[in-house]
């Protein structure tokens, strides 16, 4: 620890309040409470639970849970993180930092996937599922073969390529002497030239104060303008307004969708199309969304409309309903979840 820290620690001890003995506040943490919250994993394997998962299982899980953002091959979609590749780029301009090219510890991958992923549906993966997904990420980086099984037994034997690529902060030794010279005040240089302009790139967002409203028509108007007449209008017209309690429940279920789909006034297309107005809409017609799969486009042209029954069947098993469509989502197995999320979608189509 640095000298400044030692010095300031002494000051803090003198100045701050101090406890002579415990105040007796709080209560003992129960073992089952600690077990519920303490599942972090360290590089030395501390915290790693028993379990295992193989690459092929991981591939399927990854496709269902991760590929929407990270790509089927962990190559990354749009601006979402790439998890594979990028080897030999760290010393180049714009290095590609992936699990394979950059992450020094496999424990970090396991810990993060298990605690914080999938995005929008965290803490739902079992230990074995986590092992399998981590095995697949290793495979997608060519670090293991396709018949590899990762487990708590062999976990520490996996070598990460960039494990030796990090040094502890050395600014104190390297930079402080350089940057602690008395600065020049007069006649510091003869001439000054401008060498780069931010205006050349022109990537600064608009201040938003003046013309934003005029440039972008309200998304609702847009949706109405492009919405084709529903080929079969009856089912939509006959549906009653959704139950508010169900809509509220659906809002919670929708969190599983929210990483890719936005909904509501002004919702924009993301990885998936905006879903405002999707209930009762012809398939593959979200305004401005260009990433529909061919099967989805064909189904829409053939007259597929997202009424209650079609949504229900699609959400129960997206791949069975429409093979080779792009939505990387395993589906909602529970009838109640589907009913709720459909009611939620419907509430944005009134």
């Amino acid at each position: 620890m640095s000298k400044f820290l030692e010095a300031s620690a002494v000051i803090a001890l003198l100045a701050g309040p101090a406890l002579a003995e415990p105040l007796g506040l709080g209560r003992p943490a129960l073992p089952e409470e600690i077990a519920a919250w303490d599942h972090d994993v360290r590089p030395d394997g501390q915290g790693l639970p028993p379990g295992s998962g193989d690459v092929l299982t991981g591939e399927e899980l990854f496709s269902d849970n991760c590929a929407a953002c990270h790509g089927e091959f962990a190559e990354g979609v749009d601006n979402w993180p790439k998890l594979a590749g990028g080897f030999d780029t760290l010393d180049r301009k714009d290095p590609v930092k992936t699990v394979g090219s950059y992450w020094p510890y496999l424990s970090t991958v396991w810990d993060y996937v298990h605690h914080s992923m999938p995005f929008g549906n965290a803490q739902t993966l079992s230990n074995d599922e986590t092992y399998a997904i981590v095995a697949y990420i290793l495979y997608s980086n060519d670090l293991v073969d396709e018949d590899f099984t990762l487990s708590n037994e062999n976990f520490l034997s996996v070598e990460m390529p960039n494990a030796a690529g990090f040094i502890e902060d050395d600014r104190e030794a390297v930079e402080l002497p350089l940057f602690s010279q008395p600065p020049c005040m007069e006649n510091c240089k003869d001439s000054v030239e401008i060498t780069a302009h931010a205006s050349v790139l022109d990537v600064t967002p608009d201040d938003g104060t003046d013309d934003a409203a005029a440039v972008e028509p309200a998304p609702e108007d847009q949706a109405q303008a492009v919405e084709p007449p529903a080929p079969e209008p009856e089912p939509v017209a006959l549906v009653e307004a959704p139950d508010p309690a169900l809509v509220e429940k659906g809002a919670k279920v929708f969190k599983k969708c929210a990483a890719c789909h936005k909904i509501g006034d002004g919702a924009k297309n993301g990885v998936g199309p905006a879903l405002t107005g999707v209930f009762g809409r012809q398939a593959a017609t979200a305004d401005g969304f260009k990433k529909y799969s061919n099967p989805m486009k064909e189904a829409g042209e053939a007259g597929l409309v997202w009424d209650h029954d079609n949504l229900d069947a699609y959400l129960a098993d997206p791949r069975a309903f429409l093979p080779k469509n792009r939505m990387a989502f395993a589906g909602l197995r529970k009838d109640a979840d589907r009913a709720a999320v459909i009611a939620y979608l419907q509430s944005f189509s009134q």
């Binding site: 972090d40 290095p95 950059y102 992450w103 424990s107 914080s116 990090f166 040094i167």
Partner: peptide, 21 residues
Amino acid sequence: WETREETSKYTDTLADGTARK
């Protein structure tokens, strides 16, 4: 612990490709 936010992020890559943590 070497968590995600102190390894894959919030580490400073130097010109030679090594990174300060």
